[in-house]
Amino acid sequence: MAQDWRIVTLFIGSILVLGAIIGGPLVYAIMLSFYSAKSFVGELQWVGLANYAKAIQDPLFWQSFANGLMIALSAIFLQVVLGVGIALVLNRRFFGQSVVRAVSILPYFLPTVVACLIAQWILDPNYGLLKSLLASFGIGIADWSSQAFTARGTIVLVSVWLWTPFVVTCVLAGLQTIPTQLYEAARVDGAGPWRQFWHITLPGLRSVLVVVILLRGIWMFNKFDLIWLLTKGGPLNQTETLPTLAYRKSFLEFNLGGGAAVATISFLILAGVMLIYLRLFPIDDTKQER
């Protein structure tokens, strides 16, 4: 019995700590969204659902939502396709395999701010590496941050550079779990490399990919630091997403309630999408068939 009490105490303790550091701010943010507030210390004024009404009537909100969706989807697509491809290559036996595998995870260790600074150094239209490289071939370079497509493209490319290694690592681990005899059976059955990939590798990676896409989806849709460091949502809100919009409203426009409303809607959208996703693609695929 004494031991049971110890377990219960530890359990309750951890629930309290988690509640304080995650639940508390969450509840506070949701609460803020029903008030008008200019700062965290000022007086709060109850406005009901007005912040929400304002948010969804604002075209910028929907544009940010669309931007975020576009950036997240294209980044996840590239990360997964490249990640699977690189993992397949790294899974083959070659000289120096373990060294290359270790090096390939390195970008994942870079702090986002460092990666963004490097990207800006390379891409800067006035003094960037790329500019001088292209100039030596007599090619000029436009300012990537001044056009919607190139600005979004830069965000996607930097995110691919930073987080593809995460996908590679997960997929490599997944590949190890596929029995080699399945490939041998397929070879005897007459399946070529493409059919082996389609009928054995991909189904074998299913659970890994479901989790990887889920995690990368959440992280990319909620991405703030990368976008803020690279473009601050510009040019002309073309790379504004719901997290940057919430930040802008809260801390630059001193509209804490409005920012909280945007953040809350964003949270609800993400939660809804993830629930549907997990219903469609259960992590444990035994549930799918029965």
Binding site: P179, Q181, L182, E184, A185, A186, H199, I200, P203, G204, R206, D285
Partner: peptide
């Protein structure tokens, strides 16, 4: 094969 090597998803 010894461990049957059946395609698990089929």
């Amino acid at each position: 094969f010894q461990n049957y090597a059946l395609y698990p998803q089929k």
